[in-house]
Amino acid sequence: MARTTSARKTSTAKTTAKKPPKSPRTRNPTPPLSLAKPRLDRRPHPWMTDLQGYATLAALIAGITTPHIRDWHDHHDGTTTRRLDDGSHLHYTAATRTLRWHTPCPMGAVHEYTLRTPADTEAAQADANTCQQPHWTPPPADTGQHLTARLHTASKAAADTQPLTLADITNGLEARADNDQPKGHPQP
């Protein structure tokens, strides 16, 4: 009986030792080797920048609620802007701590207002909505004389900025050398 027991153990051991070979499809490909070590930035990214927080607070103080703080675009130069639903823009400058509102008026121009309080905001909205002033200037009545004077000034300025030839430079230096006299040292 001992033989059958040992035979069973070896045959069982042989069957468990044999595993079917893995097909090439199931193998995990090895990543290419690289000498550069990847840098993982494990620092937490801020949910908002300080400037976005300051701008949101300035708008709230001026009576404008901007619930989405991340809608402020931080330019990383001390300024941030936010577009409002009506097409106007808010601009906040950290250096001067000013909140400015740029809004189009019915006449087509863009007005700028500095907002500090809710009263400033209400006055700016009323002013922008009721603007009836045309924002273009008519040409002057003496268009012919004015245009002639501007063209004369422009042509004179253009002539003064033309490049000099080598002969002009040489003549200028010679004329200057003829008129220059040696100067003495100042007396103490």
Rank of each mutant, 00 (worst) to 15 (best):
A2D: 13
R3A: 09
R3Y: 08
K14N: 13
K14F: 05
T15E: 11
K18D: 04
P21Y: 05
P24K: 12
P24M: 02
P24I: 05
R27G: 02
T30C: 00
P31Y: 07
A36D: 14
A36H: 14
K37R: 14
K37T: 15
P44V: 04
P46S: 13
D50P: 05
L51C: 01
Y54W: 11
G63V: 03
T65Y: 06
I69L: 08
R82W: 06
R83A: 13
S88M: 02
H89W: 11
L90G: 03
Y92E: 01
A95L: 09
P104Y: 10
C105N: 15
C105R: 12
C105I: 13
P106S: 03
M107W: 01
V110Y: 01
H111W: 10
Y113G: 00
A119G: 03
D120A: 01
T121R: 11
T121C: 05
A124Y: 02
A126W: 04
D127L: 12
T130D: 11
C131N: 13
Q132F: 00
Q132C: 02
P140K: 09
A141R: 13
H146E: 12
H146N: 11
L147W: 07
A149W: 00
T153E: 15
S155C: 07
A159H: 07
D160F: 01
D160E: 13
Q162C: 02
P163R: 07
P163D: 10
P163Y: 06
L166T: 14
I169Y: 08
T170R: 13
L173Q: 14
L173C: 13
G184W: 02
P186W: 12
P188I: 01
